[in-house]
């Protein structure tokens, strides 16, 4: 059994929103970037995986098991880091420790204390007095001190300073280093993923647009820039998500078609950011 997380045909309807038939799978020992704009359906997907939301249809397997087969174990195996602190504001670290100890079989107090010390978190303060960085670190301490299999991050690195962000990336790579655990990393900030993600699932308006390895994704497109007037209709038809600007245009083109680009156009390796921007532009044109 190689897949740690398998989502099949996940559908969730809200007023004015549809998460439409989402399927992807994440093998053991890898990091998946779950990418999309705000409101694309990332958090809804995660809520369904976390079993906070009821899906209208679809199945989710975590470590080979569905939630209803063993709810307790399912919840033991997920570590979740949210975009804002989900701890009750009036609690202190001692309360969090006590709750973790009460609820989780695999909670290791010594490990938790070590992380609290390593992150320099104040034992005495109320969580409402924590800075954003401290709150994120506390969520990590709580999740990493248990024997989880899947770490889910929902926009967790937003608004963190670069030093903490790089610390977080290191923690994530440590987490998967034994090859048994995986990470689902949802974000719209793509620089973080550019480095460490193995897979990219790209979701827009409730639908999956792209699902492949990051390396393949980065290699399958080329960024092309140039003068709009010099575009032939033939080349124009190959461009993806064309963006006209005052002093030239910018678009994507499939890598295997890049050889046919005549001189006079600038071609570059795109970042995941650029790929996302132009693919969204492209999907909007299609409507």
């Amino acid at each position: 059994m190689m897949e740690l997380l398998e989502v099949k045909g996940l559908t969730k309807r809200y007023k004015g929103f549809l998460l439409d038939d989402i399927s992807f799978s994440l093998p053991k020992g890898y990091i998946m970037g779950y990418v999309g704009q705000n409101g694309a359906g990332k958090t809804t997907t995660i809520n369904c995986i976390n079993q906070i939301c009821h899906a209208n249809s679809g199945t989710i397997y975590l470590n080979g098991r569905m939630y209803k087969e063993d709810p307790i174990q399912y919840k033991e195996e997920i570590g979740f880091i949210g975009d804002e602190s989900y701890f009750p504001k009036e609690m202190r670290i001692s309360d969090i420790r006590s709750i973790q100890k009460t609820f989780y079989r695999s909670f290791q107090e010594a490990e938790f204390d070590q992380l609290i010390a390593r992150f320099k978190l104040p034992e005495k303060k109320k969580i409402s007095e924590f800075s954003r960085g401290m709150k994120v670190k506390l969520m990590f301490a709580a999740a990493l001190s248990r024997d989880t299999k899947l770490l889910i991050l929902d926009e967790a690195t937003n608004g963190l300073d670069p030093v903490i962000r790089s610390e977080v990336l290191q923690i994530l790579q440590d987490y998967i280093s034994d090859g048994e655990r995986s990470i689902l990393f949802s974000t719209h900030m793509l620089e973080d993923l550019e480095q460490i993600a193995d897979y990219i699932v790209f979701i827009d308006q409730g639908k999956i647009i792209i699902s492949e390895t990051k390396d393949d994704l980065l290699e399958s497109y080329i960024l092309i820039k140039g003068d709009y007037k010099e575009l032939t209709t033939e080349l124009r038809s190959r461009l993806i998500g064309l963006e006209k600007k005052e002093f030239g245009f910018e678009a994507l083109i499939k890598s295997d078609e890049a050889r046919n680009v005549p001189k006079g156009f600038v071609i570059n390796k795109p970042s995941i950011d650029k790929i996302m921007v132009h693919l969204i532009r492209n999907s909007l044109e299609g409507v």
Binding site: N50, I72, K75, E76, I78, F80, Y86, P88, K89, F103
Partner: peptide, 16 residues
């Protein structure tokens, strides 16, 4: 005292 943002913690504690 509880708020919607806590669901990521309280609702994920093992228990029905």
């Amino acid at each position: 005292m509880e708020s919607a943002s806590e669901s990521g913690f309280i609702n994920m504690l093992p228990g029905t």
